[in-house]
Design a protein around this nucleic acid. Structure first.
Lengths: 332, 332
DNA sequence: CTGTTAGCGCTTTCAA
DNA sequence: TTGAAAGCGCTAACAG
């Protein structure tokens, strides 16, 4: 095992360690000839800068944390892509963490990120208690909420989920649905409660009553959760239409319904949320609510890094996008 | 911005910094009373250990790197789940990197991981030149190949892709296919070339000739690549059956074929690879080759951490799983 | 433009 | 069982 430090490089190039550090961090301050001598020594020796040492000395790293609810969900993968693109443009790294919708796992992830002294954290919170996050900020870690709208003194980039829920359910009602079901994950997840509120709002502007919407809550917002929900639906009597809080749930519901011989959309209309790529390729192409997913990640990261680069001159912003209805066969 | 160090904790608890460090790292060596006093001080002060400092001092971090070809591919997400489970059991962290099948991005990722002084790297290499990786090992970073079989002095966990390719194509031939196409990403990706070799082997054991298999190579192994391939197929004349190097490609092919009015499997039979969750829910449920994906990640990580914990007593292992044919409608 | 120097916060002998 | 002290490798003043 070889360990090459900045001193070894300095010796080899016949300069001081400080100069090597300058070549690494502020190359413009070093004479071209010296610089190339140092660069050659670095190459010859296979020197790799010790990130811990520079982070320790500089007081902060060149990494940001991204904490998502479910890495298995293509929605978050697309967000991550947006983050990654900006971050690597600015020569930083992303540490991707998965909270699996669990506040405990989220807290563990945040502890690790705090220990790593990341410059900032992009997070879709798993619960409604964001006090841990505010504590992070006191330690000098910037925070931006992703797919979650904040108030006042934090940046956030979100999509109007109430509007999205309303869009989905109004569409189902226009297609003739009178008895509806809403399939979602735990109510503590804001995306779920907001989309539900939107659904209720659509009911209000129709001749239906709140009681015409049945809630089915499952523990996880993935295809497995959807399958569970569909079985409940099958047991308790099918509604005219089902609105799922995301496409993964809808795909699971679709699968079980089709297996049971239920026709979609003839017997039951179905709509999901997020418009992930797989939805259009499903057994019955899935109607959904589309969000500017990549943009969410991209803009959130720009906000975060701007805040890190100039904390004083930074004004917190809350950005809210509008979602869009995509109609396909499942509700056509 | 608050900065609480180990010294502050020590002062508050009325002990020395060394004792605080012991509470953090070897609690059993500290008297119970002292320990709880220190723990209380930690809580009161909101102390978070500086990971850079401890990594610097200890010479290595408690993190491992995972470099995958495509985070957008559910196959790798499932691998990552296996990795994550083991790693968090052992109180380590994962730094997840995406090479996007590009050796350049891979090299950048490896540099970052080397700077972070990760204990080890789990990687599915993007090219066939693994010399960068061997260099990593000289710097004391353990390496385990995932979904890629190595020889002799490195650990690897893989699935027999030649056997898988053979399984897929033999099945298509048994179903009556005489003219076949193989859709894959760049040949430099080992998964592609191995699966193709398997396909040819199946041809050999039949009455078909190598010329009966047409190669369609697309730049990216995702749904978009599949769509491209399908258009080529449509232009150049359809074969009886299509074997895709992964399910994402197959899903893309399926979509374009169906849009063009081609019936699957009546006009063209189709089989993918990986058996990702979405495949069974596709417009025409997709036949595929199943691999023990989660196990791949889990076992690779165990091998890696064992090597890190006891480099001397560690014997390198190459583990090879056998894949399994899953027949669904698309080739039924 | 380059060298010297003083730590960043923590771990880890070694003594007490 | 606890304390004192010596760095880990690097950066950022400051001097030259």
């Amino acid at each position: 095992m070889v360990t090459v430090g900045i001193k070894d490089v300095a010796r080899r190039a016949g300069v001081s360690p400080g100069t090597v550090s300058n070549v690494l961090n502020r190359p413009e301050r070093v004479a071209a000839a010296t610089r190339s001598r140092v660069e050659e020594a670095i190459r010859e020796l296979g020197f790799v800068r010790n990130g811990s040492a520079s982070t320790l000395r500089a007081g902060q790293s060149r990494a940001v944390g991204l904490v998502v609810l479910d890495v298995g969900n293509p929605f978050f993968v697309e967000v991550a892509r947006g983050v990654e693109d900006v971050v690597s443009d600015r020569d930083h790294a992303v540490i991707l963490c998965n909270s699996g919708e669990s506040p405990e796992k989220e807290a563990r992830n945040l502890r690790v990120l705090a220990e790593q002294r990341v410059r900032g954290v992009l997070i879709t919170p798993a619960g409604d208690d964001t006090s841990d996050l505010l504590r992070l900020r006191e330690h000098g870690v910037a925070v931006v909420f992703v797919d979650h709208s904040a108030s006042g003194d934090v940046c956030s980039v979100a999509v109007d989920d109430v509007a999205g829920g309303e869009l989905a359910v109004r569409h189902l009602i226009e297609k003739g649905a009178r008895r509806l079901a809403f399939v979602s994950g735990p109510k503590a997840i804001r995306q779920c409660s907001d989309r539900r509120r939107g659904a209720l709002r659509a009911l209000e502007t129709s001749d239906l009553l709140p009681g015409d919407l049945t809630d089915i809550v499952v523990p996880e917002m993935n295809a497995h959760g959807g399958q569970l929900a569909a079985r409940t639906l099958l047991d308790e009597g099918l509604p005219d239409a089902v609105f799922c809080a995301n496409d993964l749930l809808a795909l699971g519901v679709l699968r079980v319904l089709l297996q049971a011989g239920v026709r979609v959309p003839e017997d039951v209309a179905l709509i999901g949320y997020d418009d992930i790529e797989f939805s259009s390729a499903a057994a019955v192409p899935l109607s959904s609510i589309r969000q500017p997913t990549y943009q969410l990640g991209k803009i959130a990261t720009e906000l975060l890094l701007d805040e890190c680069d100039d904390p004083a001159g930074h004004a917190h912003q809350q950005i809210m996008f509008q979602p869009e209805l995509v109609v396909r066969e499942s509700s056509g």
